[in-house]
Design a protein around this nucleic acid. Structure first.
Lengths: 180, 180
DNA sequence: GTTATTATCGGCATAATGCAGATATTACAG
DNA sequence: CTGTAATATCTGCATTATGCCGATAATAAC
C-alpha cells in the first residue's frame, strides 16, 4: 500500500540541518511526555522550579521582572508566585520604595528544594548517559549550549535567558574549534 | 544582593552533565515559548504536524497505534484525527477486517502540507545556524540524535519513537497485527 | 491637586490533555 | 448458536496552564 516506504518528508540523514531540526522537535516532545506522565515533584512542579531558578539567578525581583525573565505574562507569573508562596517556597514583601511592587524572594526552603531537584535531575542524566565518554559529554554540553545561544539570539533577544546565559558566568568561548 | 553571589544551584560549568541537564531544560522551555508566541500555521498546527509525521512514518494506522506511537491517550489522538480530518489532512475509513477500528490515512494534501512545513522549519534552522561550520553542524546532529536515543531507551522503551530513530527500519504499516 | 503611568490582581476564555463511562464490534467458551 | 469477555473508539467532565482585558492601588508628572 501507500505507506510502505519513502516517507514524504525526506528526512535526509546526510543533511545535518534536517537532523537537527527534527531532533530538536523530538527532544521537546519527549520532555513534554515525561512531564505529563510523571510529575517529578508534587511540591516543586515545573513552573516552581523555573521560578526558583530565575530568582536564584536574578535575586529578589518583582513580578514584572520575573515575567520578562521567564518570557511569560505577568498574570501567569503572579499566579505561580502565589502558588509558590502558599507552599513556602518564596516570600513576598511590598517594596518600601514603591509599594505597587511586591518583591519576591526565594526562601531557604525553596532554594533547598530547588538545589535538591537540580541534583536529582543531574543524577538521572548521569545515569542515562553512563556509557558516554567524557569527551562526548563535553561535546554534547558545548553543542547544546551553542544551539540554545543561537535560539536565544535569533528569537529571544528581548528576554533574559535565565538558566541559559547567567549574568555573571558567560559560557566561555563557544568557538568552532573542536572537531571530532 | 543574592543575585551577585553564587547561585545555590551550582551550575558547575566544569561538569558536562550539569550543563547538559540545564541546557536540555532550556531548550524545551524555549520551544514552548516559541510555540505560544507565534502559531506557525493555523492550518497545520503542532499536533497535526506530529500526527502527519507519524502517519508518514507508520503508514495508515488505527487510532490506538497512533496513540502508542505518539505517547498520547487514544481519546486525545482521536480528537486530533477528527480535527485533521475536518481540514482534509487525513481520511478515516472503517477497517473492513475489524469494523471497530478506523484506519487513518494521510491525504496527499496533508502530506504536502507536512513536507512544506518541514522545509520551512529546516530553512529557519539553516538561517539560524548560518555561522556554523559543516563539521559543527554534523556534530550537533550526532549529539542530538544520540541524546534522544538515550532518552527514548531509558524512558520510552514502550513507545515507537516516530521521527526519532527510524532511519532504515521498515515501517510496518500492517493493520495492527498486534492482537496477541 | 489632578491626571497619567505603572504594577499587580481577578475574571474570563482558550487549548490540550487524561480519565471514566458509553457504545459498537469482535473473540471466545459452552 | 448464544452469552460473556475483551477491544477500539467516542463523548462528557475535570484539570492545568496560559494570555488578554479590565479593575484597583500606588506612584509620578505637571
Amino acid at each position: 500500500m501507500t505507506g510502505e516506504t519513502a516517507p514524504v518528508a525526506a528526512r535526509d540523514e546526510a543533511d545535518p540541518v534536517a537532523v537537527i531540526e527534527v531532533q530538536a522537535a523530538v527532544l521537546t516532545r519527549n520532555f513534554e511526555l515525561l512531564r505529563r506522565r510523571s510529575g517529578f515533584d508534587s511540591q516543586l512542579d515545573r513552573a516552581g522550579y523555573l521560578l526558583l531558578l530565575a530568582l536564584d539567578s536574578l535575586g529578589p525581583s518583582d513580578i514584572g521582572t520575573l515575567a520578562a525573565a521567564l518570557g511569560l505574562d505577568p498574570s501567569t507569573v503572579g499566579r505561580q508566585v502565589a502558588a509558590a508562596e502558599g507552599k513556602g517556597l518564596v516570600t513576598r514583601n511590598p517594596d518600601p520604595q514603591d509599594r505597587r511592587r511586591s518583591v519576591v524572594t526565594a526562601s531557604p526552603d525553596g532554594l533547598a528544594r530547588m538545589a535538591e531537584l537540580s541534583v536529582a535531575r543531574q543524577r538521572r542524566t548521569t545515569k542515562m548517559l553512563a556509557g558516554w565518554s567524557v569527551e562526548d559529554l563535553a561535546q554534547l554540553a558545548r553543542m547544546f549550549t551553542r544551539y540554545n545561544e543561537e535560539v536565544a539570539h535569533h528569537y529571544f533577544t528581548g528576554i533574559d535567558q535565565v538558566g541559559c546565559a547567567a549574568p555573571h558566568d558567560q559560557p566561555k568561548h563557544s568557538t568552532a574549534e573542536d572537531d571530532s
